[in-house]
């Protein structure tokens, strides 16, 4: 555990909580892509099956349980409790274009050809692109609520901090996991355009809106 890893995890947690609170306080999930939220629930579920097979630490177990719990709570909000506010008309990204290639790739490029390991690999690849329906939705509507941009910022920051964590671990522990690193790079790059808008607009007090 190093400072980048810990702040990365906390940033991830902050993102998830911000989203849940935003929906709860405003009683609305407007502007949120339910499809991205489904993908994140799939990511956590397929990655954390090792909760049943191995124990790493109390920290590790509790964070996994919290992430999974929050992911399903978010889904419950979007598709049940606040379903009337869900903007499905703008949430039109075709997730099969992500699921099929990612599923295929996880069978082809993995550390070990075993069910749990393939599911872990699948979750790493899927996470790297799971935000695309949300970004697509924002590009379609041309705007995002400020609180939604805070959510996206912390979600993007988390993987960027993990990149520093991996550099750290490579130098000080000789550890590296090529699958996680490459997927983490892809994931972070997908946020770059958003980071730019966040810094140049949202942090200066303006609403995030895209030119028509």
């Amino acid at each position: 555990m190093n400072v980048f890893r810990l702040t990365g995890d906390l940033s991830h947690l902050a993102a998830i909580i911000i989203l849940l609170l935003k929906i709860w306080k405003t009683r609305s999930c407007a502007g949120i892509s339910g499809k991205s939220q489904i993908l994140f629930a799939v990511v956590f579920t397929s990655r954390y099956l090792d909760l049943l097979t191995s124990f790493i630490s109390l920290y590790n177990t509790s964070m996994k349980v919290i992430y999974i719990g929050c992911a399903y709570a978010t889904l419950y909000f979007v598709y049940m409790k606040f379903k009337a506010t869900y903007d499905g008309n703008h949430d039109t990204f075709r997730v099969e274009f992500l699921l099929v290639p990612v599923g295929g790739l996880s069978f082809l490029v993995n550390h070990d050809f075993s069910p749990l390991e393939i599911l872990w690999t699948f979750s790493i690849y899927l996470e790297s692109v799971a935000i695309l329906p949300q970004l697509f939705m924002i590009s379609k509507t041309g705007e995002a609520e400020t609180i939604t941009t805070h959510y996206l910022f912390f979600l993007g920051l988390y993987r960027a901090l993990y990149l520093f964590n991996w550099i750290w671990r490579f130098y000080f522990e000789g550890f590296f996991d090529m699958i996680a690193i490459v997927a983490g790079l892809v994931q972070t790059i997908l946020y770059c355009d958003f980071f730019y808008l966040y810094i140049t607009k949202v942090l200066k007090g303006k609403k995030l809106s895209l030119p028509a």
Partner: peptide, 10 residues
Amino acid sequence: KADEPNHDEL
């Protein structure tokens, strides 16, 4: 191929 996949990260 890695010796033993060890996923201690989240």
